[in-house]
Design a protein around this nucleic acid. Sequence first.
DNA 1: AAAAGACTAGACCGATTGGTCTAATCATGC
DNA 2: GCATGATTAGACCAATCGGTCTAGTCTTTT
Lengths: 187, 187
Amino acid sequence: MTEEPTTRDRLVLAATRLFRQRGYDGTGLTEILTEAGVPKGSLYHHFPDGKADLACAAADWTASEIIRVIDDSFRAAPDWRQGITTFCYKMAKLFDILNSADACPIFGLLFEGPDHDRFRAQAERSLDRIIAAAARYGEGLGMPPETAQDAAETFIIGFQGSWTLARTRRKSDVLRGLPARLYGPTM
Amino acid sequence: MTEEPTTRDRLVLAATRLFRQRGYDGTGLTEILTEAGVPKGSLYHHFPDGKADLACAAADWTASEIIRVIDDSFRAAPDWRQGITTFCYKMAKLFDILNSADACPIFGLLFEGPDHDRFRAQAERSLDRIIAAAARYGEGLGMPPETAQDAAETFIIGFQGSWTLARTRRKSDVLRGLPARLYGPTM
DNA sequence: AAAAGACTAGACCGATTGGTCTAATCATGC
DNA sequence: GCATGATTAGACCAATCGGTCTAGTCTTTT
């Protein structure tokens, strides 16, 4: 049988979804609590620093999700470009599911709030985890470490920019077109 | 003698700066008013819709500023890559001036607030103005219109992604490295 | 079964939010 | 010098903000 999700998990999930849609400052604690079906006392028990803790947990959770998609995309990929392409198509599908409107699941939440530098550091950590995951697949496909790191960074830059443009235009095809922009058209 | 800036201009300028630093929801009206040295009544006279109007004006103003930098970068550029490179260096300098911390002056403010779709439309308009400005220079340098549009979009995607990564890592060199990522290393 | 700590529950708090409204002041045309 | 519309000035408002705190309920250990 399916496990009942813990109070903590319900909080993180609700917070992730709401932060993605309305941003950190745009989301009220009450809203998160209502959505999660959790009283205020529980929040401050699991996350003593309240909203800020919750945001960091949401960022961590999101990074892990993205890495999971990277894993799924590269596991059977014969080369780097194919892995990236699969990733972009998967994310385009997710984009469509999310109403074409949500913030990039990884950055959106991390440049707001009073605790600016704590959030920046958290974003850097999450981002580096993602880049490292991609770079590892680059190395596995024969790239020297430095090249792999560089390729992974270029990919993340392109993905971040594409997601933003896709969101602005409400067109997931922007995401699907990224590999052609980065590596030229397929012959 | 230098003209005293109008009340309206002081409002837009203060709002732009604050939205860039703290985001739309993270910035209070009082804060903007204090910084601009303007009472509340004046705000609602010049911007009947209040904060939302102000955000749109700030986005417009920012787009114009970016287009001015594009103009400065391409005016004397012998080719596309040189224009982009100059732009990236100029923006890297701006990035350093801005404490390496501000949101991308164009997108940061536009995916928050209650009036989601109005903001999205405003972002699209501002972004299209910027892309069109860049594409025009591409055509002037001999590209067919379609190619120029595509090159301009790729450039904006890369720039947006690079700005975000630069912000996360607090390193303006990410911006300076963009041309090499997009067009290969210079020989 | 009693004690202890983990966890839930929500009333309550001062501060701040964006926005409204009235009164005063300014500039300008007659 | 008077009238008129544009603009400034800021007191005031209900609603919401994130956070604290006390009381109560579980679960686990002994």
